[in-house]
Amino acid sequence: MIKDDDLKEIKPKPATCSASPEHVSSGLPIPKVMRICTFSPDDWEDFIEEWSTSLSGAYAKVRRFGGPGDLGVDIAGFTSERGFQGDWDNYQCKRYDHPLRPSDIWVEIGKIVYYSYKKEYLPPRRHFFVASQGISTSLEQLLNKPDTLKAKARENWKKHCQMGIATTEGIPLTGNLEVHFNAFDFSIFSSKSHVELIEGHSTTGYHAVRFGGGLPPRPDPGKPPETPAKTESRYIRQLLDAYGDQLGAAMTDPVALDAHAPIKRDFLRQRERFYHAESLRNFARDTVPEGTFAALQNEVCHGVIDICEGHHQDGFERMRATLTQAASLSLTANPLSSVTKKQDCQGICHQLANDDRLTWVPNDG
């Protein structure tokens, strides 16, 4: 019979962090390491593709392989243009419903030994196991003991590798293959933890979109160089045409603006805005997925094009009206919206003018 002493008052644990509006709307955040474990097969594949881009700085090139003919290679990082005939690293990415066990890797080790013996490639410099549910303690211990790993691989060859490496023939560990196996350096085999994956992924432009947490602080934009760069030539030409259209005199180069102080000040402001937008473009390249900044440009273009193509007294007034409209846009749908300033929107107009997507002095008037 249940006694009163067996019954305890319900007392949930106190919150370990301060509650916020985000918690009320979305619940407590799930740690990134735990979130990886919940990835669907498609999400895991997407995550690995994104994470792979973080390897590019360490290698001459990084390539993804797949399919039945992958020869045990998943993601290869090549240190030179020699590819598989030079130094290279292999990242074997697995998705199981359990942490990776020794029984999961024997055939993968067998493939590397066998196909390097067949001279399909030189043995990799390093071979990392990457798993959606992490690495089991028993496997991690084996990977830290190369001699034991080699002995266990030999013991498991017949069961896992002999008929598992190739579907068309059995591959016994005998003869020259055994000689190659005996000489093979098993210290190349190791693993990547979820923490290491997250650290690498955090350096890519996909991290904030996949895991949230906001964008990193945006650096202040640099000041425009005194002498315009070649990349500025088209939008500056459009600016000079707009000024000349109002003044009724051709402006051949920026020096011609020195005689018109208000116009010269405006010119300097427009260049600052252009460089604001350029700094946002550079920031986007490192923090959000490819195409995000181009989508922002398109949104600005759609937001101002009707004003730009409307009737205006001259090219300068057309430009001013377009920039005023750009500064009033509410760009809440783009991932960059939290770090986009009015100057950026106005500078994007000059980027669009640089690409002739906006024109201050149309040919028809």
Rank of each mutant, 00 (worst) to 15 (best):
I305S: 13
W51N: 00
T167G: 00
Y117I: 00
K264C: 08
L336S: 10
Q246T: 08
P14A: 13
V130S: 01
A295F: 03
G83A: 11
R63P: 06
F293E: 11
P124M: 08
P123I: 03
G175M: 05
H302L: 12
A326P: 00
K118Q: 15
K11W: 10
L331T: 05
S40P: 05
I198V: 11
Y235V: 04
Y91I: 10
T137S: 12
N298C: 02
A60P: 07
L139Y: 03
K118V: 07
R273P: 07
I109F: 03
K145F: 00
S138E: 15
K158L: 11
V209D: 15
D5V: 09
G244T: 07
A131G: 02
I348N: 01
V195F: 11
C345P: 04
K192L: 07
H160F: 14
I10N: 12
Q141W: 07
L215A: 10
W88V: 08
D266A: 13
M34W: 14
G214W: 08
P225E: 09
D286G: 02
S338F: 10
D314C: 04
P29M: 02
D314A: 01
D97C: 06
D355F: 04
I109V: 14
A353F: 02
V255C: 01
R82M: 07
K264F: 08
E108C: 01
A58T: 15
Q297P: 00
A60N: 15
Q133N: 13
K223I: 12
R273M: 15
A326N: 05
F211I: 06
A151S: 14
G110K: 07
E278S: 07
H311T: 07
F186D: 09
D97H: 08
L240G: 12
R154M: 04
E317D: 04
I2L: 06
A58D: 12
V179R: 10
I10Y: 15
L268P: 01
Q313M: 12
D43T: 14
P146D: 05
E155Q: 15
A208P: 13
T53Q: 04
E81T: 15
D43F: 05
A327L: 01
S54N: 13
N354Y: 13
R63E: 15
